[in-house]
């Protein structure tokens, strides 16, 4: 909640469930019923009888003020995979042939899979060991950034682009 306050994003707060429901735009009747069913089902930190059951960390919601984060949306964490590359961070065609001038690193590249391991979040895999060095390039002296839309997302320039593993064209 401190983070949301720092960001200037609202965490709805109300002294009654009805009031909170109005704030987040759901039916007060349905919401109060949901909370009441949930509370009634809480047994030793779980709600085996609630629809759907909650296995653990269940506590009754009965003491105001009540809080709500709303609205929320889906935020993607990772894809697991990415662009096929070799040990020099060169992008590959599906059959393994090198695509001249196209490099990929970080989250955009399937680096963890290149090393033959299943890793979660391969962003640091190449970024930590300096993508351009692996690619055997001096991107500042020899390279130019592609006019890709993705590149323009990063106003801090090349270092950020590489850190985030967006495509580098030389």
């Amino acid at each position: 909640m401190q983070t949301f306050a720092r960001l200037g994003r609202p965490v709805h707060q109300a002294d009654s469930l009805e009031e909170l429901a109005a704030m987040i735009g759901v039916s007060a009747e349905a919401f109060v019923q949901t909370v009441s069913d949930f509370n009634a089902a809480v047994t030793e930190g779980a709600t085996p009888g609630a629809p759907p059951p909650k296995a653990t960390l269940a506590t009754r919601i009965e003491t105001p003020p009540f809080y709500a984060f709303s609205p929320l949306m889906p935020g993607i964490t990772l894809t697991f995979g990415g662009i096929m590359i070799n040990e020099r961070a060169q992008a590959l065609e599906a059959d393994g042939r090198v695509i001249p001038g196209l490099f990929a690193a970080g989250e955009g590249a399937a680096a963890a899979f290149f090393h033959g391991q299943i890793g979660i979040g391969n962003a640091p895999a190449l970024a930590d060991v300096d993508g351009p060095k692996i690619a055997g390039l001096d991107p500042v002296a020899n390279g130019r950034l592609g006019d890709f839309q993705a590149v323009s997302h990063f106003p801090d320039g090349l270092a950020t682009v590489l850190r985030h593993g967006i495509l580098l064209v030389v």
């Binding site: 894809t79 995979g81 399937a110």
Partner: peptide, 21 residues
């Protein structure tokens, strides 16, 4: 540009969390 993708089946695991709008 012709590049292949690898390991994208992992996307189907739906590592997607609820975040602020």
């Amino acid at each position: 540009a012709g590049a292949g993708l690898k390991g994208m089946g992992g996307l189907m695991a739906l590592h997607i969390a609820a975040v602020d709008g």
